[in-house]
Structure formats: C-alpha cells, structure tokens
Write a protein that binds this DNA or RNA. Structure first.
Lengths: 410, 410
DNA sequence: CACAGTTGATTGCAGGTCGCAAGCAAAACT
DNA sequence: AGTTTTGCTTGCGACCTGCAATCAACTGTG
C-alpha cells in the first residue's frame, strides 16, 4: 500500500525517542537532561539512558554546569562542537559559497568564489570539488553535504530547470555528480528560498509560534517557501514556491515561463531597474541615472529619492498583491520578506503592509504578522545545514517524527 | 517548548500501533490480519493481539472468510457495520443535510432540509438539533458529530466570517452550541471544500499516489483545499483555501472581500449567470434568455449552445489562470475540479487543461493530472465523516501518526 | 481418500525498553 | 554543619514486541 503507516517495534521505539530527544536538544539549544525530559514527556531516566550512547558516539557532549538554581546544578548538553561537521554549498548565478558547520550549527568557515561567466559547468564543478576535498581533508569527519540551488529546482529529480541566467548548468546533474564523487557522504539538495525559509523559521518563526509561515524571497527573482509546522512544503516535484511565476494580471505581458502577467515581471530586480532606468531622464529630483544599478537604488530609496520611492512603492504594491493571494490561499500567520528587497527597510515593509491590509479581510489580516527578514550572508547556507541535520539526526527523511501522545491503553 | 516532539512510552507504543493498524484497515477497506501485518510492517502476532480488544470493544469485526488462496482461508476484518455511528451535518446557504455513517463509511441515511430564508439561526439550530436528537435516539451509540460549513470558516475559532449570503448565522456560534447540547459526543468542524477534498483524496487521489492534491470547488463560490500526504492543509486559522479571493487582476474590480480582481468575480456562478443574462438578448443562436438559471446553462452548454460555450469557456480560462497560479505556488501532482462546475464535463475540462498547459512549464505540466471530480451528493458529508473518523480512531487530533521506520538500535 | 504442502491465525518464550521510585550528587538556605 | 532542594543515576517490575513453534483450514496429488 502506498501510504500505509508503519507500526513501531520495540526496537524502533528507542530510535524514535532518540530522534525526539535530539530534536528537542536542537530546538532548545544548550539544555539539561531534565529540560529534555520535560519537553519530550519522557522520563528523566529514559533521557539519561538515551543520551549515554550519543555521548559515546561523539554526537552530543556535556558543555558545563549551570549555576543559579536551588539544588544540584544541571549539566548542559549540546551537539558536539568539534569532530563532526556538515559542509554546505550554495550555488548562485555568478558565484558559489561553501561553508562548514559543526553539528551545533556554528558557522566555522565560509568562502565565496566567483563563477567564470564563460566557464563550463564541468569546470565549476571541478573548482567546487577541489574546495570540498580540502575541507573534508581538514575536518576529517563530514556527516553530510547540503546543497542549495537557485531557480526552479526539480528536487525530485534534482535537476534545475529554466535556469535562464546560467544556461551552462543545463544538462549537468550537479547532485548526482557530487554523490558519485563522495559516495560515503550523504548529499542533500534544496531550493535556496526553501533553505532560507527554514533558517528564518528556526531563528524567528518558531519563537513566535508560527504554524504557517510564508517566506518571500524578493530580489533578482521572486521565490517563496511555505513552512507548515516546521516543515517546508516542497510540492510533488519539490518545485513548490514559484511565487514569481504566479500571475497577477491574466491579460498581462507574456513571461518566459509561459504564463502571463507573472509577479516577477512586475517586481523582480530587473523589472525595477528597467522601470527606473527608463524614467531616469524624465523625472526631476532624482539622483538616479539611466544606468543605475541596484545598490544605487537602495541608497536612493533610503535617501527618499523621488524616482526610487515611486518605483519601489509600485513594486511594493504588486508584491503585496502576491502576498495577499498567498494569504488567502494558504492562510499563514507569519509572512517574512527576505533576500535583496529586505534592504529597502521598514518604510518598504509599511507600504506592503498597507496594501495587504487593504486587500485582506480584517479578521485574517489581524492574525498575520508581516516582517522583514533579519537576514545575513549565511541564511541560505544555514538552511542547507538545517536540512542536512534534520535528515541525518532528527526525524525520518524530510519529515520529522511528529508528536505522539502517550496514553493509557484501553 | 512550543513544538517539541513527544517521546513514546512503552504504553504509548501500543496506542500508536493500534492507530496504525486501524489506519491500515481504513485505507485498505476489508482485509485480513496478514495484510495489515504487511502494510504496517508489524508482526502478525502483534496484529492479532491488537485486533482482539478492538473486536471486544465493538470497533472492528470479522466479516467472513476469503476463499481462493492455497492454504488456510484468511478472515477479513472491517470496522463494525452496526452499533457505532458517526453523524454528519452539512450546512449550506439554503439548506442543511444530515447523514448517518457507520464506522465502515457506509452512508446509512441522508436527508436534506430547507432553511427558511427569513428564519433565524436559532430557529434553524432548533430544527437541526431535533433531527440529531432523533438520530441519536435511534442509533444509540454515536461516536462523533462532524459538521461541514461553507464559506470563509475560521476553524480556529469555529466561526463563519463573511457569510454574506446568510447573514443570520453571523454571531451565532454553531459549533459551541452543538458541543454544549451534546456534551458527551465529540463535535468536529470543517470547511466544506476541505471536506470534499478529503473525500476526493480517499476515493481517488490516494490510489493515484498523489502527494499533493489541489481540490478546486467551483460553483456558487470558488473554494479550494490542498491535501498534502493525505492531510488537509488548514492554515493558521483554518482559513486556507480561499482561492476565490485570490486576484488574477491587480487593477480589477473591487470585491466585497477588500481585494481587487478576485477569481470569484470572474468565475463564480453569479458572475457566469450575469454575463450570460446580459448578453442573452444580443447574441444570436442561443436558447438562453435574460433570466436563465444555472441548470439551463448546464443544459445549453451540453447542447453546445453558442452563448453558453463562449461564457463557460471564458470562465474556464480564468479558472485555469487560478489553477496555474496554484500549480506554480504549491506544485501539486493532482488537481481535481469539483462542485457544480464539474457538471460541465469533459469538454470544459479540456478547455481548462489547454489553458493550463499554455501557461505552465512543460516539465511541471507533465507531472500534474487535472481531472473532474466524480462527485455525488454526499461528497462533503463523507468528508466530514472521514474527518471525525480520523480524529477519533486514526492518529492524533488532526494529524495522523506518520510512518516511523523501525530500525536496529545503534 | 489419506497425506503432504501451503498459508493464515494463535500462543509460548525471550529480549528489550520504559516508568516509577529509591538512591546518589551537588548545590543553596538556615 | 545540617536540612532542603533539585538534577542525575540505578534497581526493579511491568509490559510490549518479534521470533518460532503450533494450530487451523484449505488445496493438490498419488
């Protein structure tokens, strides 16, 4: 049967509980056995017994005593800080980045490397794998490699489709190539917006108790990812989240994707720059010229330049329409706007919120937070890390074990 | 901690496995202990031992021997056919229906009752509860009541919002009222499109192995529901699926919901009828008049009436745009179109598919089936039944226990 | 027609995990 | 210094599962 639920053997229960314990440890960061016991509902004794082999195997370690309480000090636990690592690769259009994390999630090292514009995929792959080789040599024990890929990314087949900006990758199967080069290391792949969303959820949404979080990645492209109860919605082929190719205008301009009036045509960086460049000469009171680039627009917007304001606010309105559509369709309680456009700041956010408020029913609007991402350079890389960690140590492949309430038997 | 996963005690494991077994029995319908053993991965002995108390408690029964095989005949099991029942109420704008199901999912009785147009909610509630009282009296053991409600339905608060067609319900809290009238019977509520989607998934999508199914309820309103791995996506407030209030035209007409260019303004039954009525006098070669009703349009469309064809096909195009947006956003592998518009038949479907094919990337289009619902009168009621059954017997509240793979301990 | 062969259901047994409760450890308070 | 408090650990009993043997019921065959 297709979707039959597996029963749980007496042996499986131990693994199940071990995963629950590790997930709790990951959720809470550094914490004591007692805290894990409370969080999981398991007996303290059970936690003690489960932790022991994890310490033996060098997955978890004791990181010191906690002072302050009344009685005995509790011993804080954490994932090991050294000895086991996860490498992450982020592929972008013009560059790639490689980062090393320990199991705790500390970013140990990150480097960005340019991709030669005329270089072949094969050449780039060679550069990537040389760096990975070196890292693996240094770190000794690498438990997994996480890869974040841009654009419409067929996760199911692990192929990138429609990567118009970098046609050289077309036909080069990065993930299988990595797998065959590192047969002993699990290689996991994700779409970069999904990775960023996972990070955003872990470091922000989770604390807010968001059940459904929509992450909107707005910049060069318009992507999105939906996080439901801590799980990224991937879609049947892993292609979910192509918000940019959602139409807000049935009779609009034809897009390369086949659709008409795609959100991306209104709001992508290219669209924004084109509009600004076209009007630069005709508008008075602007510092922007007909060859303005994005960082100039960011600055101009911050300086309340007239042209920048008008065009960025136009983008805000369209983006808000896309967000409204999502809100009505999937009913999130948190919307986070990330990627380059997060740089436009609070004023930009307020524009979006104003438009969303105007187009969404009050009882829905009141229940959804809309925020800017506090993103950093490593948001996507960290998402790739979280993906690998979840699949390696917490829960079953791409799906954590969910809460199962212990109950008295009937 | 908010979302900590619960560990599983030695007692809990029995409950967990019992739910897995019941879920398997429900999935496969009538089947033997052996088949359940294979489906769940549990030992035959464990299945035997788990089934025994279920038979004692009158939840499962043996329904006869299966002949045909080589060796001993297997004994088929099924949920009991009598003795325990689930009542379902479907609330519509002008009527309500009440149905009785046995645990096996057989529809024992269903009745529809009109709602007086000028009647108060209180009056209607009185009628509803009188009928429920009678049913409960007859059936003796009622394990749950499932309620399916139309329109934007705040599941979290169990309130209907924006029920413009039937303002009398505004401010009347149906579900709490039912709960307090039947304190011993669990009352569960759902949005009707979600209920229909669940039925569609159980009776069709599951067999196709669909991982992400989009159900589009097109008729008086345009609703939708997303089923991911057999679970309905409800959204933070349970409001997910308002596809009808998704915009396909940023600068379009203002909708009552606050948004502009809502899909519903283009495609709802009201919109379709209005367009047809307006043009009825001016178009030659049509049998439709300026007071045509929906069933006349259905007939005219089937008879290839010119006006009906034009307008229905226009609707198809807009609906296709909405579906394309969904496909790009959530990447389903199955789209099912239900409710009244399913009555337009294959020709209508082909129109939609043509438009979707034109607007979606080929590698995505090729991976998604678009079909009409084979719906019947009881689709929604049955969905309410499935909802109650799942929450009562299979899995934890609103989330079935997922596959947990037994593994050798490390 | 009896007997081997096959397959499903049941039962006895051994292994293993968990919770409870008692015991141990290490701090603060008095 | 002794008591109290709190967290970690260990001993014990209960319980569930899997394995394997057994029972049950049917088919096929010489």
């Amino acid at each position: 049967m297709k979707l039959a639920q597996k029963g749980l053997s007496i042996e499986g229960i131990q693994g199940h509980n071990r995963r629950a314990i590790l997930a709790a440890l990951h959720d809470m960061g550094e914490c004591s056995r007692k805290e894990i016991s409370v969080a999981t509902g398991l007996d303290q004794a059970t936690v003690t017994r489960a932790i022991a082999p994890l310490i033996d195997n060098g997955i978890v370690e004791e990181v010191g005593l906690v002072r302050g309480g009344r009685g005995r000090r509790s011993i804080n636990l954490a994932f090991v800080g050294s000895g086991r690592y996860i490498l992450c690769l982020r592929l972008q259009r013009r560059s790639f980045s490689i980062a090393a994390f320990n199991l705790r999630g500390d970013l140990l090292e990150t480097n960005e490397f340019p991709i030669a514009r005329d270089g072949s995929a094969k050449q780039t792959f060679k550069e990537i794998s040389e760096i990975l080789d070196r890292q693996i040599g240094n770190l000794k024990q690498v438990d997994g490699i996480g890869v974040a890929v841009p654009g419409p990314f067929l996760e199911r087949d692990e192929r990138v489709i429609l990567m118009t900006e970098s046609p050289q990758w077309q036909g080069f199967d990065l993930i299988p190539e990595l797998r065959s080069r590192y047969p002993d290391i699990p290689v996991h792949s994700t779409h970069d917006a999904k990775a960023a969303a996972l990070t955003e959820w872990r470091h922000h949404g989770r604390a807010l108790g968001a059940k459904v979080m929509l992450y909107v990645s707005a910049g060069q492209g318009i992507g999105s990812a939906l996080v439901v109860d801590g799980h990224v919605h991937r879609g049947a082929q892993g292609l979910a989240g192509e918000l940019g190719h959602t139409s807000i205008s049935v009779d609009g301009e034809q897009c390369k994707c086949g659709n008409r009036g795609c959100l991306e045509l209104f709001t992508s960086r290219i669209a924004l720059l084109r509009a600004i460049r076209e009007r630069a000469g005709d508008v008075s009171g602007t510092t922007l010229t007909s060859d303005a680039n994005f960082s100039q627009v960011l600055d101009a917007y911050a300086a309340e330049d007239r042209l920048a304001s008008e065009e960025v606010h136009r983008v805000a309105r369209y983006l808000a329409q896309g967000i409204t559509n999502c809100i009505n369709f999937v009913n999130p309680d948190l919307v986070v706007i990330g990627d380059e456009y997060a740089g436009f700041g609070q004023n930009f956010l307020e524009q979006i919120k104003t438009h969303v408020r105007a187009t969404v029913l009050p009882s829905i609007y009141d229940a959804v937070d809309i925020e800017l991402s506090q993103q950093s350079e490593d948001t996507v890389l960290r998402g790739a890390f979280l993906d690998v960690l979840a699949q390696t140590y917490l829960g079953s492949p791409r799906a954590e074990p969910e809460a199962v309430v212990a109950e008295a038997s009937g």
